[in-house]
Design a protein around this nucleic acid. Structure first.
Lengths: 153, 153
DNA sequence: CACTACATGCAACTGAGTTGCGTTAAGCTT
DNA sequence: AAGCTTAACGCAACTCAGTTGCATGTAGTG
């Protein structure tokens, strides 16, 4: 085991292949970019990073691969309250779903897990007899630091 | 009082004007379209309905008016899980926030209010010291009728 | 009633994402 | 290992939603 981290590289690739999807040089690059991203990336950002590894990679391939990952539930698509235009952001689907909070002043994105959130989704599935495949809870507002800052400026 | 309904026409117009915003012929038309809509409309749909009243109205005016309403918190912008392309939908901001559920099979949109939802937002504000201005909780999945239908076809 | 600042309409533009198609290459099959 | 088939790739052209610049029109003030 050469990867002692909690989230070992290659796990996304492994899940991808275990679904019988064809692995290509380009997909390998894109998956590793998505997997190792430390922040939320949009398609253009993913392309830029992928091209540092393989300059031949095309933006169309990035879009097609992201659609594939989305359809297979391997990544989630986020809007992040459209703080910067209409583009989408992507993240590996986590074990446990979380809420995204976007600060309208500083643009910071925060994530928040909550029992209440899990219970709410359970309630929807039971009370509405609705089978949830994907969910997105995004919040726009003002973060703690911007709230205190706004009293000084 | 000529309007005995729960949601009397003109209330949106009244809120709009009470904010000191300039009322024009076009805005009056657009606001009444938004206010009386029985379903979630996108900008093109709002334009189409507005043009039935006033054919001179331009799509740019619709976009500008929707942006204005959004900035003033008088309407909410929805993605409805991007079931049909990337366009946005609009609804009057309700007294009590609700969740949108979009069926991936039949396209139906359902709304759901929940105490748990209200409590969850309260928790976010308290635990994260985050002041919520706007929130959007959208769910994609399969509705009750499509779940039972899918066993037969 | 006149003035001014803001709203409108038009046309041109932007930016994200998609499609068609000829070429390339995964990953089976033997 | 070579050949085969089917899917993925790269490129260019396109679509679609929404935005911007600017000249003209008009709401609301005084």
């Amino acid at each position: 085991m050469p990867f002692p981290q909690t989230e070992q590289p290659g796990r996304l690739q492994a899940e991808f292949m275990s679904r019988g999807l064809r692995m290509t040089r380009q997909r390998k690059t894109i998956l590793s970019v998505v997997e190792t991203a430390k922040q939320h990336l949009d398609a253009a950002g993913i392309l830029r990073r992928a091209q540092k590894v393989d300059p031949e990679i095309d933006r169309v391939t990035v879009y097609r691969t992201l659609n594939l990952l989305k359809r297979h539930g391997l990544v989630d698509e986020l809007d992040l309250m459209h703080l910067q235009g209409e583009k989408h952001y992507y993240e590996r689907r986590p074990q446990r779903d979380h809420i995204h909070m976007a600060c309208l002043r500083c643009g910071k994105i925060m994530e928040f897990e909550s029992d209440l959130f899990d219970r709410l989704k359970g309630q929807i599935q039971r009370d509405c007899r609705f089978h949830i495949v994907v969910s997105r809870f995004e919040v726009g507002g003002y973060c703690a630091s911007c709230r205190s800052a706004s009293s000084n400026d």
